[in-house]
Simulated assay, not measured.
Amino acid sequence: MTINAKTNDFPIEKSSKPKSRTDSNKFRGLVLGWILPIVLLVSWEAAARLGLIDTYVFPAPTIIFQKIVEMAQDGTLWGHISITFLRVLIGFFAGTFLALILGSFVGYFKWFEQLVDPLIQAFRSIPSLAWVPLFILWMGIGEPSKVLLIAVGVFFPVYLNIVSGIQGVDRKLIEVGKIYHFTSFQIVRRIILPASLPSFLVGLRSGVGLGWMFVVAAELMGAGQGLGYLLVVGQNTYSPELIMASIILFAILGKLTDALLKSLEARALRWQDNLQNQQ
């Protein structure tokens, strides 16, 4: 890697991959990604129709899909999805913001890591459900306690990846920056941030995944609406199709948000000369 002494910038080479090849790879990836879900659904439906599984506790996909359609038609589905998505969104941004601030200081300043990191690692070992009674005691069963629980779940993977990304920056790159008289701000902006960006984006994807997991625990705290609430309703009314419908909706929403972040990651890291960008 070379540095342009006049502009103090790293030259970025444009990818020479043809657009048609990129589109072909995307289409192939889309097709391959649907193979296993389709095989699973077809096998599941066949097993239910042939009586190989007990449909009372494990309903067929068509029954589950019918339940989702019924909720969509009577309008209740969109309210449950929107409130759950809003909780995850607010908790995700709150947890990410705090992780970005603390992780940057911990990763860059050794003394701050020695001061703060041991306590954070101790908190990371606490199970998610252990926070539930404490948050209810502090804030009741309203929205703040639910959002805070989600933010806690998002915080730790984002924090760990930010710290790891910053501390993993090659020291030689920083030395080269100093040779070209980069200021501390320029070293952070032009060397440390780009070098730690891949790890940070992986942390975001891990964080949003845990956000969807923690929202279930959050919505068990006396929620009156949301996909987690539907799980409780399905359990109390002995409706396995409602429980399965809620689980599938969680899977779909989680996959969509992860795909969005993965697309953002691919766009932000197109400058990397790695195996992923060459395929």
Results as ranks from 00 to 15, higher is better:
27 F>S: 01
157 P>N: 09
47 A>Y: 09
70 E>D: 12
104 S>F: 04
110 K>E: 14
8 N>I: 10
98 L>F: 15
47 A>P: 04
86 L>T: 10
63 I>P: 05
7 T>N: 06
34 W>S: 14
196 S>F: 10
125 S>F: 14
65 F>G: 05
231 L>K: 05
244 M>E: 06
115 L>D: 10
27 F>D: 04
98 L>S: 02
276 Q>E: 10
163 V>H: 05
198 P>R: 11
26 K>Y: 04
88 V>A: 03
50 L>Y: 06
133 P>M: 13
207 G>W: 05
146 K>H: 05
58 F>I: 09
163 V>Q: 04
115 L>I: 15
235 Q>R: 15
18 P>N: 07
220 L>T: 08
124 R>E: 14
98 L>D: 01
89 L>S: 11
236 N>P: 07
96 T>V: 01
279 Q>H: 11
189 R>S: 15
185 F>W: 12
111 W>P: 02
4 N>I: 07
225 Q>G: 03
118 P>W: 14
217 A>Q: 01
54 D>E: 06
11 P>F: 13
263 S>R: 14
45 E>H: 13
127 P>H: 00
207 G>V: 01
28 R>F: 10
44 W>M: 09
40 L>K: 07
200 F>L: 05
6 K>N: 11
27 F>T: 05
137 L>F: 12
123 F>H: 09
168 G>S: 10
216 V>I: 15
17 K>Q: 02
25 N>D: 07
95 G>Q: 03
159 Y>Q: 08
64 I>D: 02
153 G>Q: 03
111 W>Y: 04
100 L>C: 06
162 I>R: 02
279 Q>I: 14
50 L>A: 10
211 G>F: 00
64 I>S: 00
30 L>W: 11
83 I>P: 01
38 I>R: 07
22 T>F: 11
77 L>H: 08
168 G>N: 14
269 L>W: 05
209 G>D: 00
76 T>C: 02
100 L>K: 08
172 K>C: 03
32 L>Q: 06
33 G>T: 11
48 A>Q: 01
263 S>E: 12
202 V>D: 06
161 N>C: 06
